[in-house]
Nucleic acid binder design. Structure first.
Lengths: 226, 226
DNA sequence: TAAAATAATTTGACTAGTCTAAAATAGTTC
DNA sequence: GAACTATTTTAGACTAGTCAAATTATTTTA
C-alpha cells in the first residue's frame, strides 16, 4: 500500500495532535491543522481506516495504528535528517528549513536517507535538538533534560530541545535568540501561565506562555559558561 | 501557473524528443516515452497548450514554447545538480542515481538548488559530463569535444560526455567500463551502423551501434595517459 | 428532560489525470 | 480516386482529493 504525500500529511498531523493531548484526535483539529474542511477530513479518515493506518470511529475520533505510526516515524526521520543537512551543509536560514524539509520528506527514498545519514556522520538529534529515529525507526532515548516549567526563579539552564511544530512559536523564539545551546536564567514564574527568562546572550527578558515553556527541553546549567 | 510533477514530466519528454529529431513531437512518441495511453497524452497536450507551455496542433504534433523550455531547463538544472550530489557526496551507485534525481527534481526549491550548487563548488558538468544550466538557465558552452563517430580506426580518444536518457544504454556502457574519463581506441568502423572500440582499462573490444556512438562526446587523447 | 448549541457526517459537485472503446483523420497503396 | 491502415481524437467512465450545503449526532444548558 503506497500512500500519497497528502495522506502522509494527515497521518503526521494525527501523530502530533495525539502526542499533544492523550485523547483520540477529532475531525476539527485535523481540519484546522491541515487547512482543509471537515468533510475532507472525514473522507480521508475513512480511506485511511480501510487501509489500516488508523482506527477511526465516527463521532469519536481517530488514532494511529501500528502501521500508521511506522509511516510517520519514517517521515520524522526523513524530516530531521533533511533539516540537519539543510542547516549544516547548505547553511539554510531557520525560517526556511522547515518548509523545504516538509516537502522533501515525502519524496526521498530510504536509500537516500540512509546515505545522507552516513554523510552527516550519523547524528542523533536535529538542529532543534529533537531526536532522529534510526533506520529501524526507534527513537534514541532522550538526554537528561526536562521542560523549562520544572525550574523556578533564579535557576539557570541550557536549552537542549526546541519545539518546532508551530511556525509562530519557532519564529518568536528565533527572534528572541533562543535555540539549542542558549543559556537562560529563569526570572519569574507567576501563576498565570507565564514564565519570564533572561537569555545569557541577550539584553532583555523574554516572556513565554507556559504552553511554550513546557515544550522547551532544558538541563540545569553546570555553572561554566556555554 | 504552477505545474504538477506529471505535467513537468510531459514537458521534459517533449524537450528530449524534440532535440532527438527536429520535427514536432507526435502523440505516440510521448505516449511510449511516458508509459501512458495516447488519449491521456492528447488531453494533457490540450491543457498544456491552454496554459501556454506548448504549441499543439491536433494531428500535427507539439512543440515547446519559450515558457515550456524554461520549465524544462530548470528541471534539467535541478536534475544534474542532484545527480552530482548523489554521486559525489552520497556515493550513489550509477544505477540508482537517475531514478532518485528524477523524483527529486520536481520537489526542490530554487533556493535549495542554488545553495546545493554553492555547496558542490559551482560545478559546470554533472557526472555524465553533461553541462549544468546556471541559475539564469543558460547552458555553459560545451567543451571542445565531438561525437565518437567523428573518429576513425586507430585513433585514441577520451570520453567527456555520456548520453543518459536511455537506461539500457547507460547500463550497457557502465558494464563495459565506459564513462567520463575513459580512454578508448577506435578499432573498426564498418559502414553498417557499428563502431568497435577498445577501452584502455578493459580487456576486450566493445561494439557500439552508431546511434550510441554519435552521442558519446569525446576529445582526441593527448598521448599522455589518463 | 427538552431545547439549543456544537461538532461531525452525508450528499452532490468539481478538477486533474488516467483508462477503454469507438469514431475521425491522415497517409499510403493500388 | 477509392480503399486500407495507422495514428489521433472524442466520448464516457473511474479514482483521489477537495469543497459547500444540508443533515444528523452529541453535548450543553436551562
Amino acid at each position: 500500500m503506497t500512500l500519497s504525500p497528502i495522506a502522509e500529511d494527515y497521518l503526521t498531523a494525527i501523530y502530533y495532535l495525539q502526542t499533544e493531548h492523550e485523547r483520540a484526535v477529532g475531525t476539527a483539529e485535523i481540519s484546522e491543522d491541515l487547512g482543509v474542511t471537515p468533510p475532507s477530513v472525514t473522507s480521508m479518515l475513512e480511506t485511511l481506516d480501510e487501509q489500516g493506518f488508523v482506527e477511526y470511529t465516527p463521532y469519536e475520533g481517530v488514532e494511529l495504528s501500528a502501521e500508521g505510526e511506522s509511516v510517520v516515524l519514517r517521515l520524522v526521520r526523513n524530516h530531521r535528517l533533511l533539516e540537519t543537512f539543510l542547516v549544516e551543509c547548505l547553511d539554510y536560514p531557520w525560517s526556511e528549513v522547515h518548509d523545504e524539509a516538509d516537502r522533501l520528506e515525502h519524496h526521498v527514498s530510504d536509500e537516500f536517507v540512509s546515505r545522507l545519514e552516513a554523510f552527516l556522520g550519523e547524528p542523533t538529534t536535529d538542529p532543534h535538538g529533537d531526536p532522529i529515529p534510526d533506520s529501524s525507526l526507534s527513537i534514541p532515548t532522550e538526554g537528561p533534560f526536562a521542560p523549562l516549567t520544572e525550574y523556578g526563579p533564579g535557576e539557570t539552564v541550557v536549552v537542549e530541545q526546541v519545539p518546532h511544530r508551530d511556525p509562530d512559536v519557532r519564529e518568536y523564539l528565533t527572534r528572541q535568540g533562543i535555540g539549542p545551546g542558549t543559556r537562560l536564567s529563569v526570572e519569574d514564574a507567576p501563576p498565570i501561565d507565564l514564565v519570564t527568562v533572561f537569555p545569557a546572550s541577550g539584553d532583555a527578558s523574554v516572556p513565554l506562555p507556559t504552553h511554550v515553556a513546557r515544550r522547551l527541553g532544558v538541563r540545569a546549567a553546570d555553572g561554566t559558561s556555554n
